[in-house]
Design a protein around this nucleic acid. Structure first.
Lengths: 225, 225
DNA sequence: GCGCAAGCTGAAATCTGTCTGAAATCCGCC
DNA sequence: GGCGGATTTCAGACAGATTTCAGCTTGCGC
């Protein structure tokens, strides 16, 4: 687990680092807003512990800018007092949880764990190939920034192909797995869906293409290879 | 706080679920050993309430296997009689506390809290996602200045979705958790509430949207991402 | 190069879940 | 009993998914 700590009060920052240390978490310490933001923007952390009051650029603003930059790393905000307005302001700007100082290290750890868990350490199952990511639960296909939603059949077809890239999958088999044994689906049905998929791959500007093997079936390959 | 309940006696299981409900704990109910074990193995719970006698795979064995799998979620074992041998056996296999039936709900809650506390878990009073704040005690949903009050069912549905944003929650599961196992609620009920919620999200002018995965369920996401 | 079989793809038709407004019903509360 | 909000029911509108079809392109053997 990688944790970024942004806390100006040196003593507290050290203590936090210590706590992380004991959990064998990899922690980076930063002591002001701009540094914190810069580190956080790398997007490499699992959780960010962010003080609300910071010199230079305050915590609320850091949170806001992170969200604006589409960095979705969970943020645990530390607020000095339990002023309701502070809490709300933090959550408002994109923090995911908050804690008022002082706090027990147990609680800190519990909240960090909770955030990490929520984030999707719960395995978001995906299949991927050459920069193409197929999310098995949302049925979304993404590449870089772009993302498209796949219909059920599109999804099933692609799933079969992406599971074994470069291996030719007979149309027969696709029909069997997607339409089921007793369907009357014909080859053309598969062709239609392959066509749909190719269009979406193109839209995603992916290198991956679906190749045809005449009289047999299809397989995935990286373009140009 | 997430609690897993493994109890074969349906009536008692429901009662436990009810108690958890009142505390605003997220509880999953399972009615036999194998299911309980499978759920518990996900490691997503803060406490497991486990009946000692279960069909299929008994509670002691479930506890043992959990510990063997290095799942350290605290276990509160329920034993039918106050047979000393049972208690000892339970604690032996990795249970952390036990209680004899019948018991007062007060005591159950106290013990659950104690176990959770030991674990370092904390009761959060709000859930938030992308600037959306769901207040668990007032059932209010706010974003920026605006705020709306949610009905009970609306609240429950949203709570499930916001607990794990971006994770698809099957309608089936929503029905189970909000309406209960033996309800005759249909898919359309969920759809209606989702519709209500979308309207309120829109009113709040939130970035968060409830997305549909056809034939499966729903998930929360930030618009435009 | 020819011709045919196989494959591609756009458009139309159809089908199937989903959405949503409105009415009906329930329920706690005065 | 009546009121008001919450919940359920229902049906038509809607949207997206799937199928069908026809015309066109491509690949391959001859």
């Amino acid at each position: 687990m990688r944790v970024l700590i942004v806390e100006d009060e040196a003593r507290l920052a050290e203590a936090l680092g210590q706590i992380m240390e004991e959990q064998r978490y990899l922690a980076d310490l930063t002591y002001n807003g701009p540094d914190g933001l810069a580190y956080a923007l790398t997007g490499q952390y699992d959780v960010i512990v962010l003080d609300g009051m910071l010199p230079g650029l305050d915590g609320l603003e850091v949170a806001r800018q992170l969200r604006e930059a589409h960095i979705s790393t969970p943020i645990l905000m530390l607020t000095a007092r339990d002023e309701v307005s502070d809490k709300v302001a933090g959550l408002d700007r994109g923090a995911d949880d908050y804690m008022t100082k002082p706090f027990a290290s147990e609680e800190l750890l519990a909240r960090i764990r909770a955030l990490a868990r929520r984030q999707g350490e719960v395995q978001t199952e995906v299949l991927s190939y050459a920069g193409l990511i197929l999310n098995l639960s949302t049925r979304c296909l993404q590449r870089g920034e772009r993302e498209v939603r796949l219909g059920f059949k599109e999804f099933e077809v692609l799933r079969i192909l992406i599971a074994y890239p470069k291996m030719v999958v007979p149309k027969e088999e696709i029909i069997l797995k997607v339409w089921g044994a007793e369907s009357f689906a014909e080859d053309n049905n598969v062709e239609v869906y392959v066509s749909f998929l190719r269009k979406k791959l193109q839209f995603l500007d992916s290198q991956v293409t679906i190749r045809t093997v005449r009289k047999v079936g299809y397989y995935l390959e990286v373009e140009g290879a």
